[in-house]
Design a protein around this nucleic acid. Structure first.
Length: 1146
RNA sequence: AGUCCCGUAGCUCAGUUGGUUAGAGCGCUACACUGAUAAUGUAGAGGUCCGCGGUUCAACUCCGCGCGGGACUACCA
């Protein structure tokens, strides 16, 4: 004999959370769930590593709920789902946090203030600062992930895999050194990161000299069309710049392909010489303010304010592409291929001339477009053999003395460069320069003016970034960097991406797809301290280099170095190759400064030093499919069991982060996708749609919410409120609502079941009653349940958690609770323990148990409790937890669409009758004689018959009268069937619609009788059949009628004496039931009733005393003229007041 | 600036290959129900489906241009 179904006083989901957690921990449920059933195999999931140096927030709960739900679902389907946790431990935020905590800046690291070793030691500790909180939240929110053996990106074995990966790329030539344009502070001597550029007060308005330079075109076949119909020898293109000091480094001009350019005859305002110039048509007025074409050309004199002009020609920018021009400032000759007109998307006509001067060494766009077109940058050969831009790292024009002598002889024009060499490009860089002295910009502009190469020189205020440390202007400057040639893989990356199932699809094809299409090479370098060091050693001149791909290799190379006398000893002497134990790997540290101190020997016997850069932390995390298992040093043979992932999920902000690096590394190394399915979720905003931030205090605290509500309502809310990829406006009220509406209702339904099942000692011990032997309403809910199983299964399968959870929720609230239980209540209460009652218990039990399995992935705590409570007493399942049980499979044969439709009609009609009662103010307790129902066709009558009793009970009406569709009393309404007629008649639809709407009652009747109706529309004969229209009975004059869609119902509201008596009896039952409850009687207690005798109620009570007695468990009902006032309770029945007295019968 | 997402009732969201009364929950108001009761039912009020154009017999739905909110990327002569 098993016990009873547990009954609870209240629903305390916070308590449930804690209790279930204890059970999971005690019984090791998570680890038991990592198994496979029915030969399903593994389902591979990758956990994106969070950084534990910040507190977890509510957005982590969202992405982890998604991951957890999918993994639990797959587990329930029988797959083995291993989930290795991971920690992202490198990166700038950690360094900045430590800098702040120690009160130091980047410049202090590596000085006597703090060594790199000390700094990195601090980072290693700091990064795990919030590990406890993370583990706590993971535990409490019910996120099942294996935290016993996480991958940690700073671990030497992890780094070893990264090195191995880099070496694969290096040996195929995909890892190379080049330069990139980055913000650089010459005054501080350091590059600036984008976050430094975003510091407040960084961008400031400054007054700079700008000029519009004139670039002389070279006449050849391509440019010939520009030389037609002109009266000057030359044609110039005009380009504006706010940094004239970059003009000597110009190597190209850019125009917009679709921008319209004009050729204009005008004058050089400084020399008065006639000129023919080209610029964007939109900017004509800006170039020639205050004049138009009416001004006389010959009248112009140099210096006149208004410059006259004539537009000679118009053409799109695409025609200018490829034209050559003459170098503007001939100080240094660049390589072959310079001085061409290119086309670029970034060109606009908002300011300037619509033609952009390109200096690839000093602008990111410039660098990019030049690279695309193969145009060389202005690079100078230095004395040490390296190449550099025309401005040195201190912000000065490179002194000739720093240049390679041969280079100077061949390329440099000493005459023209002489006056400018060694000057700072901004006066601020030289403390000794009087701020009022002319800047290099001014002098270059003046020089251009003197040589007739400038159209306008102007001072202008514009915003320009400044270094937050030195307050001095920042330069965009070429910085050495290592790149991965991702562009070589672009097509393959796109191809592979098209095989990935993205949720939402638009992120895959849009955001991510577009990103791949516009891919540039991956800049891997970071000039920092705490991160994975680039494993490349090079000779001083860069001619010889080596990339190290493993610790063993490093050990061997160092051995050679020791032999060559470059190193005193081999720090890895005790490292044992092939021993993957932590002990062995803890003999070294692959971080800086350890690796910086290693000197290797080149094939020709020269010293090689490590390239000082670290690699982008995104490489760390993107490489986790390999590095988490220390591939290929371990798991070489079973790697296919962990790659690629079936599923990953993170926030949409990871599109260019983790998603990209995972995808790219997998493509480059394994020519494969890294993941097959992916959900990228949106942001969580506060309830007003503002970004959450700790500073504003509007951030939701997941710990607090879980403590108060338990994690189930939070998880449920996060997934059902909106699709996860939409931004979620988080409102705690919503969590409360989910708790009340969904969990409250489900809990109530279970409580209801448990209450009566315990009274009747139902244990599900009986054999299953065949579904076809169960009553209509049971078959109905079972049909809906199977529809739900199908729907939920499909949605989970499709990674649409929102749809699955919403379907479950609708089923529980609308169908199971508000209709099935409500209609079936009486079957559980009283009566014999018969076939019908057992059927009712079995049906409700099945619904609850199935729901617990369906919803377990999303609400793992409560659903496990529900499952356990049902199981504990019934022993239906061998599994101890819902998370070890299988996901239900729907039985198509139990889905009865016809029955579902019948019940839908019943619900609709009931709701309409309720509405009618309300209209005439007749309570449901008052029985009424009949409803009348027009029947549009015979099948409708049949359908309603099946649910007739249900409806009559629900609305407390005795009879139904069917009204034949020919009944004269019905008022009909006719409407065209647009869906059918639309495609057939097209533009005649409007007239048809009007004609049909205009039919009289007689005409409708005649239409129905003959089955056809002829119309003449726009001179054309049209024959409509009954299929082409919809006819409904809309009204029955003289009766209370309601209609909705195609349904119409009328209610007879006459209350006869007989009906009135029954109504009174029900009123009494109601009052007595209330008194029972107030007196605290048990539901099974028997009572005795005395009712004050009164003319108004006497007949009703006498007639219905048996009925009253059976409903209230009364052994006797007595009418008494004198009830002692102090003991009886006064109740109002309609307009009269009557006293009632009850007490417990023995 | 580019790319992507979102815009439907006071709030949070549905709305299935375009088809004629645009739905739900919450909130509000009123009424009912009461052996599921920290529930429930019914009704009412509340909508230029962000705007403007276009395609179509027919647009919340498809297309274009805008506007507003958000994310990411990039920072420019």
């Amino acid at each position: 004999m098993r016990g009873k179904f547990p009954e609870y006083k209240t629903l305390d989901l916070s308590r449930v959370n804690k209790d279930i957690l204890k059970i999971w921990d005690r019984d090791n449920i998570f680890f038991k769930s990592i198994r496979q059933l029915n030969g399903k195999g593994e389902y591979i999931f990758y956990e994106g590593p969070p950084s534990a140096n910040g507190m977890p927030g509510i957005h982590h709960v969202l992405s982890r709920t998604i991951k957890d739900a999918i993994c639990r679902y797959r587990t329930q389907c029988g797959y083995e789902v291993k989930r290795k946790a991971g920690w992202d431990t490198h990166g700038l935020p950690i360094e900045l946090g430590v800098e702040q905590a120690l009160g130091i800046t980047k410049e202090d690291i590596g000085t006597e203030k703090i060594s790199i070793e000390e700094f990195n030691r601090a980072c290693r500790i700091d990064v795990m600062k919030y590990t406890d909180q993370w583990e706590d939240l993971t535990h409490r929110m019910g996120y099942w992930v294996n935290m016993d053996d996480p991958y940690i990106t700073y671990d030497n074995r992890y780094i070893e895999t990264l090195w191995w990966l880099l070496k694969q790329l290096y040996s195929k030539g995909y890892l190379y050194k080049d330069y990139t344009i980055q913000p650089y502070s010459p005054a501080a001597g350091t590059g600036l990161s984008s976050h430094e550029l975003n510091l407040p007060n960084c961008y400031r308005d400054v007054r700079d000299t700008t000029c519009i330079a004139l670039f002389r075109l070279i006449r050849n076949e391509k440019s010939e069309f520009l030389f037609e119909d002109i009266d000057t020898a030359d044609v110039h293109m005009m380009a504006w710049t706010t940094t004239p000091w970059t003009l000597p480094s110009n190597t190209a001009l850019a125009v917009g392909k679709d921008i319209e350019y004009i050729k204009v005859r005008s004058f050089n305002p400084y020399s008065g010489e006639p000129i023919t110039v080209i610029f964007a048509g939109d900017l004509r007025d800006a170039m020639f303010p205050g004049t138009d074409e009416s001004a006389d050309l010959p009248e112009y004199r140099a210096g006149d304010r208004k410059v006259p002009f004539r537009v000679l020609d118009r053409f799109p920018g695409s025609r200018l592409e490829g034209i050559d021009y003459e170098q503007l400032i001939d100080w240094v000759k660049p390589g072959e291929g310079a001085f061409k007109v290119l086309t670029g998307d970034f060109v606009t006509t908002e300011d300037g001339t619509g033609i952009v001067h390109i200096a690839p060494t000093f602008g990111a766009d410039d660098y990019k477009i030049a690279r695309e077109y193969g145009v060389p940058a202005m690079l100078l050969r230095m004395k040490d053999g390296t190449f550099g831009p025309m401005v040195d790292k201190k912000g000065y024009m490179v002194p000739v003395s720093d240049l390679d002598e041969k280079f100077v002889r061949e390329r440099v024009s000493l005459n023209s460069y002489g006056p400018f060499e060694g000057r700072p490009v901004k006066n601020e860089y030289d403390e000794n320069i009087d701020p009022d002295t002319d800047t290099l910009d001014v002098d270059i502009a003046v020089m251009l003016k003197q040589t007739g190469k400038v159209f306008r020189i102007e001072k202008m205020e514009h915003s320009y970034p400044h270094c937050w440390r030195t307050d001095k202007p920042v330069l965009y400057y070429p910085i050495d960097a290592w790149f991965i040639r991702t562009t070589a893989f672009r097509d393959r990356l796109i191809e592979l991406n098209n095989t990935i199932n993205w949720k939402p699809a638009s992120t895959g094809s849009g955001r991510f797809g577009k990103w791949l299409e516009n891919l540039v090479d991956w800049n891997l370098s970071r000039s920092r301290f705490w991160g994975t060091p680039l494993p490349v050693w090079r000779t001083d001149d860069g001619k010889e280099s080596v990339c190290i791909g493993s610790v063993s290799e490093l050990k061997a190379e160092m051995e050679k170095s020791v032999m060559a006398g470059f190193m005193e000893s081999n720090p890895l002497a005790t490292f044992t190759e092939g021993d993957n134990s932590p002990e062995n790997y803890n003999k070294l540290d692959l971080h800086r400064p350890f690796v910086d101190n290693i000197i290797l020997v080149s094939p020709s016997g020269r010293k090689m030093f490590r390239e000082p850069d670290l690699i982008d932390v995104w490489f760390d995390s993107g490489a986790m499919p390999y590095a988490q298992s220390h591939y290929p040093f371990e798991n070489r043979d079973n790697f296919s069991e962990m790659f690629p992932a079936d599923f990953v999920a993170e926030g949409v902000d990871q599109t260019r982060g983790w998603f990209f690096t995972l995808h790219t590394i997998a493509c480059m190394i394994s020519d494969s996708v890294a993941f097959r399915n992916i959900i990228s979720n949106g942001l969580i905003l506060d309830k007003n749609g503002n970004k959450m931030s700790k500073r504003l205090g509007n951030a939701a605290d997941p710990f607090e919410i879980i403590e108060k509500y338990g994690s189930d309502p939070l998880r449920w809310y996060l997934l059902t409120n909106s699709q996860p990829w939409d931004n979620l406006k988080f409102d705690i009220e919503g969590v409360d609502e989910v708790k009340r509406k969904f969990f409250g209702t489900l809990y109530n339904t279970y409580s209801f079941f448990a209450l009566y099942a315990n009274v009747d000692d139902f244990r599900y011990a009986e054999k299953d009653i065949p579904v076809n032997e169960r009553p209509e309403i049971d078959r109905w809910i079972i049909s809906l349940l199977n529809s739900l199983v199908r729907e939920a299964g499909r949605s989970y399968e499709d990674y649409d958690l929102t749809r699955a959870a919403r379907a479950i929720q609708d089923f529980v609230i609308d169908n199971l609770s508000n209709w099935y239980v409500r209609q079936s209540r009486k079957r559980y209460w009283g009566g014999d323990y018969d076939h019908d009652k057992i059927s009712a218990y079995q049906t409700l039990f099945t619904c609850l148990e199935t729901v617990s399995r369906l919803a377990a992935p999303v609400a793992p705590f409560f659903m496990d409790l529900l499952f356990r409570d049902l199981n504990m007493t019934s022993g239906r399942n061998p599994e101890e937890s819902v998370h070890l049980a299988l996901f239900p499979v729907h039985d198509e044969s139990l889905i009865d669409k016809d029955l579902e439709e019948k019940m839908f009609i019943a619900q609709k009609i009931s709701s309409m009758v309720h509405a009618l009662r309300r209209k005439v103010s007749i309570k449901v307790r008052q029985p009424l004689a009949k409803i009348m129902l027009p029947v549009p066709d015979s099948s409708f009558r049949k359908k309603f018959e099946a649910v007739r009793d249900l409806v009559l009970t629900e609305v407390n009406v005795r009879e139904v009268e069917y009204l034949d569709d020919t009944a004269a009393m019905l008022v009909r309404k006719i409407k065209p069937n647009f869906r059918l007629l639309g495609p057939k008649y097209g533009r005649m639809m409007k007239d048809i619609s009007n004609a049909v709407a205009g039919l009289s009652q007689e005409e409708i009747a005649s239409f129905e009788a003959s089955g056809t109706w002829d119309l003449k529309i726009q001179g054309q004969d049209i024959r409509l059949t009954l299929e082409d229209v919809e006819i409904i009975s809309e009204d029955i004059p003289g009766l209370q009628v309601a209609n909705e869609g195609r349904l119409t119902v009328a209610l007879d509201v006459t209350v006869t004496d007989e009906l009135r008596h029954e109504g009174i009896a029900r009123e009494f039952i109601n009052r007595i039931q209330n008194m029972r409850k107030e007196s605290g009687y048990n539901v099974t207690d028997k009572i005795r009733i005395r009712i004050e005798d009164h003319d108004y109620v006497r007949e009703a009570i006498l007639k219905h005393s048996d009925y009253i007695g059976s409903q209230t468990l009364a052994t006797e009902i007595v009418l008494d003229r004198n009830i002692n006032g102090s003991r009886g309770k006064e109740v109002e029945i309609d307009e009269v007041t009557v006293k009632i007295l009850i007490d417990k019968a023995q």
